[in-house]
Nucleic acid binder design. Sequence first.
DNA 1: GTCTATAGTCGGATAGAC
DNA 2: GTCTATCCGACTATAGAC
Lengths: 209, 209
Amino acid sequence: MAGDTRSRLLEGALETVRTHGIAGASARSIAAAAGVNQALVFYHFGSVDELLAEAVRHGAQQRVLVYRDRFDSITSLRELLDLGWSLHADERAAGNLAVLAQMLAGAQADPRLRTATAAGLGLWVAEIEAVLHRILGSTQIADFVDIGGLARAIATAFIGLELYDGVDTDGAGRAMSALEQLATLATMLEDASPLAGKTARYLGRCEGR
Amino acid sequence: MAGDTRSRLLEGALETVRTHGIAGASARSIAAAAGVNQALVFYHFGSVDELLAEAVRHGAQQRVLVYRDRFDSITSLRELLDLGWSLHADERAAGNLAVLAQMLAGAQADPRLRTATAAGLGLWVAEIEAVLHRILGSTQIADFVDIGGLARAIATAFIGLELYDGVDTDGAGRAMSALEQLATLATMLEDASPLAGKTARYLGRCEGR
DNA sequence: GTCTATAGTCGGATAGAC
DNA sequence: GTCTATCCGACTATAGAC
């Protein structure tokens, strides 16, 4: 926990939310985690909510930057999956997705956290969306599925899994395995271009609904 | 808000978590919502946590029962999807999934809420799993994907979507549309049995990983 | 079972010395 | 910028009258 007071408080806020949840993130507990005086929360950020809002932005920015290169190098659904699981494992250990999940829960009842939380999640969504566009943009899938929507679905599924992991680790593991199996199936369909072509033509005939 | 004090408190707890979030669910606010004296929380449940734990069980049981018949009548993936969206809309309005999401967030930092929350979510998972077994059990999908895991993935995805909906309604809508499109695609693959057969044989050759 | 009253704790926020 | 000291409200939980 180094740096000037401002960044110490930002880091302290993230650590406190991680370990005590959004409900346990008070000015006092955050200041203790940051190793600074409690009054400085209000001097630097005005209120606890403001601090939390800035912290979630800060944290998401920081983490997305760590993975930027790896996102950029992805060229297939298979690689995206592999990154997804290793990212999930990393962030599970580091607890950054947990912070986002906690903020998401807190934001439901507190409008002041909404925009900041949406922005933090938006950073992850943007990365996923860019990758999906690159690897699916030229396939038929892009014609039938909104890629931006898909990116949002993937990001939120990660959030749900993260929360579930906290109350039932075995169950979350099974869920991830099932998604892995399902996604592997999709990857193979993608590779087997004749099938993809057939599917696309089939869909073309059924666009009624 | 009728009935005896005990059930008034259970209902009041659900309503309070719904409207004020888990962080705002104090003995006082719950008692106010229930229209009873604050001290009765401790007389009947011992502590706020205990009340919340019982409330989430109570709420999940109640809601699952409402949908029981509809779950039982499902015979295809298409019907499961339709129920999924209408259920999501219902529960979004009634706010019961929101309660589960809040409890899930609160349980991360509070071990006493963990088992109760896991049990509440488990009721939903069990319903989904039963349906999936019925409609997928005889297909090749069951050979490649853990149905129980899939049910857990679906349930948690709903939770993630619910939380996301609270901070970005448009984004959540796009995510749901994308899933709809993707699932429609899957339904059609299911209908087009020749393709499914081919896929299965293809998978059989690739089971290495 | 239900009420009032209250002890004791913790939290947000500010004033003012340094 | 940082600290101490403090106000005040909200909270959990209990004691005791009814």
